[in-house]
């Protein structure tokens, strides 16, 4: 369905995406995981034909650069934050994008109802809350019932409540056989939505693993999300690794799986290394029993874990 082959995108001398390869079969659902700047968004932009790149990306056999318009017919895209004319009414926005997708007589009421936005048709886009905007973006992405959904950190700008509602909505939708590729750095989203996780670091896809394996590695009981200064993060990772933790970069912080009874251990180690932790969050460790998340090994054709050098 989606085939990404040796894709490299440079900004000047810096390779934002470097030799990335990834293939999604129909119905597959892959999370792109990695720190900010790892190349997730750039890879998605390449996939949408927004950026030029070296290598090949095809969607259903259509080259996204040469036949981008055709290829994008198959794709519903939800950005991190909906950027659209604020003065437009919600229904107008839906109609506008429906037409671009070739739907002659769209009914915005139904489209909006699907994402729980009924009754907001005549509001202006700017009057919507962040969560409602993302729902609108999702409604637009779902117009024309695309076979592929591409989501770029869609919950990043939402608060905790908005986030969980939105994930529940996505969970509902993911059961319908769509192919999904999404960038995320929230384990609960990955657990809920992804079959596989492609980990990105410095523009490379470093590993592709079934979600279960990935989460097993990521957490042993619960996950600490530690926020600190950027330049402190590599040292923190080194220090934690040295004592047996498996930390990984994530967004503005690092994620460390900890035993539920020893949640303070990383703080002590970091304090010894004179690293100041600005803030932290305790995330529940996702389990494989999460409804909606299919067993990662369900796909016969997929190797259970594929760690790239």
């Amino acid at each position: 369905m989606i085939r990404i082959e040796h894709v490299t995108r440079r900004f000047g001398r810096y390779a934002a995406v470097n030799e990335a390869c990834l293939e999604l079969t129909p119905g597959d659902s892959v999370a792109l995981w990695g720190a900010n700047g790892a190349g997730k968004t750039t890879l998605i932009r390449c996939l949408l034909g927004l950026l030029r790149f070296k290598g090949n990306i095809s969607i259903n056999g259509l080259d996204v650069l040469r036949r981008g318009k055709q290829a994008r017919m198959l794709v519903g895209y939800v950005p991190q934050e909906l950027a659209f004319h604020d003065e437009m009414k919600v229904a107008e926005a839906v109609v506008f994008f429906a037409r671009l997708k070739g739907i002659g007589h769209p009914d915005p009421a139904i489209a909006l109802g699907n994402v729980g936005l009924s009754g907001h048709e005549s509001k202006r886009v700017r009057e919507l809350s962040g969560g409602m905007k993302q729902r609108l973006a999702l409604a637009i992405a779902l117009l024309g019932d695309p076979r592929i959904l591409i989501l770029d950190e869609v919950t990043a700008s939402l608060d905790a409540v908005g986030r969980s509602e939105f994930v529940r909505l996505l969970e509902r939708l993911s059961g319908e056989g769509r192919t999904m590729l999404f960038a995320s750095h929230r384990p609960e989203e990955v657990g809920a939505l992804a079959r596989r996780v492609a980990e990105m670091s410095l523009g490379r896809i470093t590993s592709i693993a079934p979600t279960r394996d990935f989460l097993a590695r990521a957490s042993t009981g619960c996950v600490l999300h530690l926020l600190m200064r950027d330049d402190a993060r590599p040292i923190a990772i080194r220090e934690l690794r040295a004592v047996g933790f498996d930390p990984r970069l994530n967004g503005e912080g690092i994620l460390v799986g900890v035993h539920p009874d020893r949640k303070a251990a990383p703080f002590r180690i970091l304090a010894d290394a004179s690293i100041a932790v600005d803030d932290f969050e305790i995330l529940p460790a996702p389990t494989q029993a999460t409804p909606g998340a299919p067993p990662a090994t369900g796909d016969a054709g997929q190797p259970a874990a594929e760690v790239l050098p």
Binding site: A91, V95, D107, P108, A109, S118, G119, E121
Partner: peptide, 14 residues
């Protein structure tokens, strides 16, 4: 015109 029609549809659904 289509948009108008849709808006009237919205109106009724509203």
């Amino acid at each position: 015109s289509t948009c108008r029609r849709d808006q009237s549809a919205i109106g009724s659904s509203l």
